[in-house]
Amino acid sequence: MNPSYHIKSFCSIKNSQVSLNGNVVFESNTDSFSEFIKAAYKDQNTKYPKFFKMDNLSKLAFIAADILLKNENIDSEQDHNIAIVFSNKSSSLNTDRKHQESIQNKESYYPSPAVFVYTLPNICIGEISIKYKLYSENSFFIFDNFNAEHLLNYSNSLLSTNKANQVLCGWVEFDSENNYEAFLYLVAEDGKIKHSKQDIITLYNT
Rank of each mutant, 00 (worst) to 15 (best):
F36Y: 13
I37G: 00
K38F: 14
K38C: 11
A39L: 09
A39P: 14
A40M: 05
Y41R: 02
Y41K: 05
Y41T: 03
D43A: 02
D43Y: 07
Q44G: 01
N45L: 06
Y48H: 09
P49A: 01
P49T: 04
F51V: 08
F51Q: 01
F51L: 02
K53H: 15
K53F: 15
K53V: 14
M54L: 07
D55Y: 07
D55R: 03
D55L: 06
L57N: 02
L57G: 02
L57S: 03
L57P: 01
K59M: 08
K59S: 06
K59H: 00
L60M: 04
F62V: 06
F62K: 06
A64C: 05
A64W: 02
A65Q: 06
A65W: 02
D66I: 06
L69V: 10
K70A: 01
E72K: 05
I74D: 02
I74S: 05
D75K: 13
D75S: 07
S76V: 00
S76P: 00
Q78R: 03
Q78N: 09
N81L: 02
N81C: 15
I82D: 08
I82G: 04
I82S: 00
A83Q: 09
A83C: 10
I84A: 09
I84E: 12
V85S: 10
F86N: 15
F86H: 08
N88E: 00
N88Y: 06
N88V: 00
S90H: 01
S91G: 12
N94V: 15
T95N: 12
T95W: 06
D96I: 14
D96H: 11
D96F: 12
K98S: 14
K98E: 15
H99S: 14
E101K: 11
E101M: 11
S102T: 14
S102H: 12
Q104I: 15
Q104E: 15
Q104D: 13
K106E: 13
S108R: 14
S108F: 07
Y109Q: 09
Y109W: 07
Y110S: 09
Y110W: 13
V115W: 15
V115K: 15
V115A: 11
V117E: 08
Y118P: 09
Y118Q: 04
L120A: 07
L120P: 10
P121I: 07
P121F: 10
N122E: 11
I123C: 07
I125W: 02
G126S: 02
G126Y: 05
G126E: 06
E127D: 06
E127A: 05
I128K: 10
I128G: 00
I130M: 03
I130N: 14
K131G: 03
